[in-house]
């Protein structure tokens, strides 16, 4: 499958997309407890791009018809109540535990992918902090980092054989994965990400991060700092090989990105210890160690 055909296949898959296998066990454990703690629920959802996107989709959906957009998970839990969020997480997680076919065929190791997503989220948040972004906005940097590659999930799960071709092309030709996807599939993970963002009606900042994190200089919108920060965090995760995004030949961020953010690569690199520690805490929470 490629191009339009691939798009249609992914569209059908998106609505029943399960969370990443890495977090499924913990989600089930937390949500099946009668006295689930809000902080545990918040943590486990925040650590999974699919679950996080689904909860944010629900609260901002026509189902609730809220007039103001809710962009924080903490607020979503307080407004919707623990039970609703717990049920939603549980029903999403069950999809993952019942349907394991997708993980068998997966060409991209999903634990590695999860680690990459988490690393980009954590790094983006630390970069925001370094740049004195207001505390309440730092969470947005985390969300956007966590979700930036979400388009790879349906590609990997729904069209693993085709995706393998793209991954191999990237390795053989020593080009970035997004270039290899375009060349072999005529459809990239940023295109697949856009399908999810549109289908789930996620906010514009996440949409722009997903769409432009490989083409920053084309970006004309109003979330420039956010897009650029996630791009730098993505590069950081790839270069330090924390997790695996499938992108073994990442394109270094253009100088303009660093200039705009007022950052130097050395400052980014210096975050390594903090980022690794935070990831370790998440792994302990998910009992991965």
């Amino acid at each position: 499958m490629k191009g339009e055909q691939l798009r249609r296949a992914l569209e059908g898959y998106i609505d029943k997309m399960p969370p990443l296998p890495t977090s499924v066990g913990k989600v089930l454990e937390i949500c099946q407890k009668p006295n689930a703690q809000p902080s545990d629920l918040n943590k486990v959802i925040s650590l999974d791009p699919v679950l996080l996107a689904r909860v944010m989709k629900l609260i901002n959906s026509a189902y609730y018809g809220l007039t103001q957009e809710v962009t924080s998970l903490v607020r979503a839990i307080i407004m919707l109540g623990l039970n609703t969020v717990k049920n939603l997480a549980l029903s999403t997680a069950v999809l993952g535990s019942l349907n394991t076919a997708h993980t068998k065929n997966a060409v991209l190791n999903l634990d590695g992918f999860w680690l990459h997503s988490l690393c980009v989220g954590v790094t983006a948040k630390h970069l925001a902090r370094l740049r004195n972004v207001a505390a309440q906005d730092q969470e947005t940097y985390f969300f956007c980092g966590l979700l930036h590659d979400i388009g790879k999930v349906p590609l990997n799960n729904r069209a693993p054989e085709d995706y393998l071709v793209a991954l191999q092309a990237s390795g053989d030709q020593r080009i970035s994965l997004v270039q290899a996807e375009a060349a072999t599939l005529e459809f990239t993970h940023t295109d697949a990400g856009a399908l999810i963002i549109n289908a789930w009606k996620l906010s514009e900042d996440i949409r722009d991060v997903v769409a432009y994190h490989h083409s920053p200089l084309d970006y004309q919108g109003s979330f420039r700092d956010l897009v650029f920060t996630v791009l730098v965090a993505d590069y950081f995760a790839n270069i330090l090989e924390i997790g695996f995004s499938g992108n073994r030949f990442p394109t270094p961020p253009p100088a303009e990105v660093y200039r705009t953010l007022g950052l130097k690569w050395l400052q980014v690199e210096a975050l390594e210890d903090q980022v690794r520690q935070e990831i370790e805490r998440a792994k302990v929470f998910l009992k991965l160690t």
Binding site: P38, S39, V74, R75, I77, I78, L82
Partner: peptide, 24 residues
């Protein structure tokens, strides 16, 4: 009400989450 650990000694206390919960 803020559903997120309000006691600073609670092992689940996360100041950012706490603040967002207070605001919400």
């Amino acid at each position: 009400r803020n559903l997120f650990a309000t006691d600073a000694d609670d092992p689940n206390h996360d100041p950012e989450v706490f603040e967002e919960g207070e605001r919400a």
